[in-house]
Simulated assay, not measured.
Amino acid sequence: MTTLFGSLFVFILIIAIHEFGHFAVAKAVGIRVNEYAIGMGPLIYKKQTEETQYSLRALPIGGYVAMEGEESASDDPRSFNNASLLKRAAVIVSGAGMNFVLAIVAFSLFLLITGYPTKIVDEVIPNSPAAVAGIQKGDAIRSVDGKEIKDWDAFSKTVASSKNPITIGIDREGKILDFTVKPVEKDGRPIVGIQPTSEKHPVKAMGDGFKMTGKVIVTIFDVLGKLFTGNLGVDNLSGPVGVVKVIGDSAKYGFGSLMFITAYISANLGFMNLLPIPALDGGKLVFILIEGITGKPVNERIEQGLSVASFVLLFALMIYVTIFGDIARFIQ
């Protein structure tokens, strides 16, 4: 149940935010919106206002904002096709833009919830090397092998790179003590058995939310580069089944962990939607660019044909990744 509710929460939140970006900017620039839908397929609930129908549909695999004149030309002066190129471009990029905003906010919430680790010992794992050596809760880590430790990250990296016994300098209520500790390996890396206290830094969390979103984008560039060069196989990617499993695993560790995976998926969706593929927002931007250069819109049949073809290819890729990636990993 945790996996189901966690997955629904993440998918619906990301979809709703993405479509709200399109919706809000379309309304702001005066384009008529006929329907704002969360989900696809059969209608579960709807609310009709003077201009827009707000819908909740059965399948949480997407959503849409149906704008007048988006799929076919309309004479309505407020239609999408009659809006300026700049306004149309703004509407298209706003979906991905909101995904990046969600990623920044969710990463920031994750950091606010988990806090930043300090050099103060919060817990010593029983029978661990640190416990055997005599390190206690409340001790402040000062040094390792005589070298000053500035923060927990530096301490963690030092321990992780140690194969031999290390000397940990501790400040215990004003007394400077040294403890010789031999790290042991757990899950493939050396540890000493210390858990640090944490501090909340709201301003720093917001700034790091931006940085973490940027790092996700850089990672996507790296993955795409490896895919094109053949250094990474498509079967190493995750499809819907794999994503649901990751969300479920994250939900078990609480709301903070769920915010982290939400941010990661939202940043990925925002970036992928801007790729110049006809079925995606990035492809629509390309068509607008061509119209801006040539002075006339791309032939409607050609645009629709390319969109359908690319959608079929993307759907086929998703099935392939699900079968030879997700399912293959589960049955190994």
Rank of each mutant, 00 (worst) to 15 (best):
G6R: 02
S7C: 06
S7A: 13
F9Q: 09
F11Q: 01
F11R: 03
I14E: 00
I17L: 15
I17T: 14
H18Y: 12
F20C: 07
A24C: 10
V25R: 08
V29I: 15
I31H: 12
N34V: 09
E35A: 15
I38H: 09
I44E: 05
Y45M: 14
K46H: 14
T49I: 11
E51K: 12
L56A: 06
I61L: 15
I61A: 15
I61F: 15
A66D: 08
G69H: 14
E71W: 00
S72W: 00
A73S: 11
D75I: 01
N81M: 12
A83Q: 13
L86W: 15
L86S: 15
A89E: 01
A90Y: 01
A96S: 14
G97K: 03
G97I: 15
N99K: 13
L102K: 04
A103R: 06
V105M: 13
S108R: 04
L109F: 14
F110Y: 09
L111M: 11
I113E: 11
Y116T: 12
P117Q: 07
T118Y: 09
V121K: 03
D122Q: 10
P126C: 07
P126K: 13
A130Y: 01
A130L: 05
A140R: 13
I141H: 02
S143K: 03
K147I: 09
K147C: 07
I149D: 06
A154K: 10
K157E: 11
V159S: 04
A160Y: 00
S161T: 06
S161F: 02
K163I: 02
P165E: 11
P165W: 09
T167F: 04
D171C: 05
D171E: 11
R172H: 12
R172F: 09
L177E: 07
V181C: 11
P183T: 02
E185W: 08
K186G: 05
E199R: 04
E199V: 09
M206L: 14
G209T: 04
G209Q: 06
G209F: 09
I217W: 08
T219D: 08
I220R: 08
F221Q: 07
D222L: 07
D222Y: 08
K226P: 00
K226L: 01
L227M: 03
F228G: 00
L232N: 10
L232V: 01
G233A: 10
N236S: 15
D249K: 15
D249L: 09
G254N: 08
G254T: 12
G254K: 13
F255H: 13
M259A: 08
F260C: 13
F260Q: 15
I261P: 01
F271C: 04
F271K: 04
L274Q: 08
L275V: 04
L275A: 03
A279M: 05
G282L: 00
K284A: 00
L285N: 00
I288Y: 06
I288L: 14
T294I: 04
G295A: 08
E300S: 02
R301M: 06
I302Q: 05
Q304A: 14
G305K: 07
G305E: 04
G305P: 02
S310W: 00
L313D: 07
L313C: 10
L314D: 00
L317I: 11
Y320V: 04
V321Y: 01
F324G: 06
F330G: 01
Q332S: 10
